[in-house]
Simulated scan of single mutants.
Amino acid sequence: MEDEFPKKRNVRPVEKSNLPIITLSVLVLLVLAMLYVGYEYISDSSSNSEELTSVVVDPNPETELAEPVEEEPQPITSTEKTERPEPVKEKVKEVSASSIGGEQITHSVKSGETFSSIAARYNLKLETLKGLNSSVSDVKAGTTKLKVQVKTIHTVGPGDVLRVVAEKHGVTKDAIMKANGKTKDFAERGEKLIIPFPQKK
């Protein structure tokens, strides 16, 4: 007598694969990495927006502009052709390190850095950084070294995580990471950390 439920022949074995889970995990990590890089780019460019948003307001708004007067072109003489006025260089008011306080460090300019990006990194005003380096007119990667004032230099001790160091000096953890060029919240024992000023100087 045959069984009521005959055995199934050629049953396909069930395979358990972790490939979809691994693929999904990799995609999620890529999206998070792209969001993080985008956030860093936006926050870096927004810290430099101070220069772009400063507007000079005319103290006398009631004064009317005079209509432009058209002048006839004058013939150029031979002496005018050879004499060219030298470009006017912007005078930078020199700033002394003692007036700011803190400690002075030397920053070697890297590729892509400007006065404004370096000032933002160490939480300094642009005019302060230029005043500390009044002899430097243009920054060049690899050759230019700038004097920078910071609050202090902290040597990492046992139990010093960045959050604790930030609280100890009254600055944010992000400000310490930015000043030290860190992308990860990690500091090794004995490492010297640059502590920027809490407010722009």
Rank of each mutant, 00 (worst) to 15 (best):
S45R: 15
S45I: 04
S47I: 00
S47C: 01
S47M: 07
S47A: 03
S47Y: 02
S49W: 11
S49E: 04
S49T: 05
S49C: 02
S49G: 03
S49R: 08
E50C: 01
E50S: 07
E51I: 12
L52G: 08
L52R: 10
L52K: 12
T53K: 14
S54M: 08
S54G: 02
S54V: 06
S54P: 06
S54L: 03
S54C: 02
V55K: 15
V55P: 01
V55L: 14
V55W: 08
V56Y: 11
V56E: 08
V56F: 08
V56L: 11
V56A: 10
V56T: 14
V57A: 07
V57G: 00
V57M: 06
V57R: 14
D58P: 00
P59Q: 05
P59S: 03
P59F: 01
N60Y: 14
N60S: 10
N60D: 09
P61Q: 04
P61D: 02
P61L: 00
P61S: 02
P61H: 01
E62W: 11
E62K: 10
E62F: 14
E62I: 11
E62T: 06
E62R: 06
E62N: 09
T63K: 15
T63F: 15
T63L: 15
T63D: 14
E64C: 05
E64F: 07
E64Q: 13
E64V: 13
E64W: 06
E64T: 11
A66V: 06
A66D: 05
A66H: 08
A66S: 13
A66G: 10
E67D: 09
P68S: 09
P68F: 08
P68M: 04
P68V: 13
V69Q: 12
V69Y: 09
E70Y: 08
E70P: 03
E70G: 07
E71A: 05
E72Q: 03
E72M: 07
E72L: 12
E72G: 00
P73Q: 00
P73M: 01
P73V: 02
P73D: 00
P73R: 03
P73Y: 03
P73I: 02
Q74F: 10
Q74L: 10
P75R: 10
I76A: 05
I76T: 05
I76W: 00
S78A: 09
S78E: 14
T79G: 01
T79A: 10
E80S: 04
E80Q: 09
E80Y: 02
E80N: 02
E80P: 01
E80F: 02
K81G: 03
K81F: 14
K81L: 15
T82L: 11
T82C: 04
T82P: 00
E83K: 10
E83Q: 10
E83R: 11
E83S: 06
R84D: 04
R84Q: 13
R84S: 11
P85Y: 13
P85C: 04
P85G: 07
P85R: 15
P85V: 09
P85D: 12
E86Y: 12
E86H: 12
E86S: 14
P87A: 04
P87G: 01
P87E: 05
V88Y: 11
V88M: 07
K89E: 15
K89W: 06
K89C: 07
K89M: 12
K89I: 14
K89T: 14
